[in-house]
């Protein structure tokens, strides 16, 4: 039977119980991944610790990782958590904002949700429709076809009926949420962004 790794207190002399080192490793992992523009989930953290910290006769029990992370959030101001559908996700605000982390979280939840939440956020925060092309760029990284498929799906499923599109005189397609933007305003803004601004550089 493997012994659980202690996640509190100093390391012991025999090197099998890591104490603070586990905490330091976990914090460093979250910060590194944030610097690389990524979130890290609780299972990933557990797996990482299992591989890099645990020894043949110790292991990371799930609940002790949960407790460790809860403690680290309290002790490190920059560490933040986001609740996803299946897991908790972590990032460091030293190199990642909450807004960016939210986008990455939505990306974990599938392209339909990613697009819908991004469009809603843009309409709510900026009062702006979103050009369809942005979803083909980082951090969204969807294929153009995939974006079109998502739009078709949204038209059919429940919960996305606020997502609307408008097409400009230059054939640019823009998305907006009717919860936060009136159609007439969204249409005008899309035309301005796609055509008007280019004529008024």
């Amino acid at each position: 039977m493997k012994r659980p790794i202690h996640t509190e207190g100093p390391s012991e002399g025999d090197g099998t119980v890591h104490g603070d080192a586990v905490a330091d490793t976990t914090v460093a992992l979250i910060r590194e991944r944030s610097a690389a523009g990524e979130l890290v989930s609780e299972p990933e953290i557990a797996l990482f610790l299992e591989r890099h910290v645990a020894t043949p006769d110790t292991s990371m029990a799930g609940d002790c990782v949960t407790a460790l992370l809860a403690r680290l959030l309290l002790e490190n101001e920059d560490l933040k958590a986001l609740r996803g559908a299946d897991s908790q996700w972590y990032y460091s605000s030293r190199s990642m904002t909450g807004e960016y982390a939210e986008i990455l979280l939505h990306a974990q939840e599938g392209p339909v949700r990613l697009i819908a939440e991004t469009v809603r956020h843009s309409a709510r925060i900026y009062q702006r429709p979103v050009p369809l092309e942005i979803f083909t760029e980082p951090p969204f990284n969807l294929a153009y076809r995939q974006v079109l498929d998502c739009l078709a799906t949204m038209a059919e499923i429940e919960g996305c009926d606020d997502i609307a599109t408008t097409t400009t005189s230059s054939s640019g397609v823009y998305l907006y949420s009717t919860k936060h933007l009136e159609a007439v305003h969204a249409e005008m803004l899309a035309e301005w962004f796609d055509v008007g601004q280019a004529e008024n550089p």
């Binding site: 944030s34 610097a35 523009g37 190199s95 990642m96 904002t97 909450g98 807004e99 960016y100 986008i103 925060i125 900026y126 702006r128 979103v130 050009p131 942005i134 760029e137 980082p138 951090p139 962004f193 601004q197």
Partner: peptide, 13 residues
């Protein structure tokens, strides 16, 4: 003009 890890806001324009 696109979301960046350091940025709170972005604007495609």
């Amino acid at each position: 003009n696109s979301p960046q890890p350091w940025a709170e806001f972005y604007d495609p324009n």
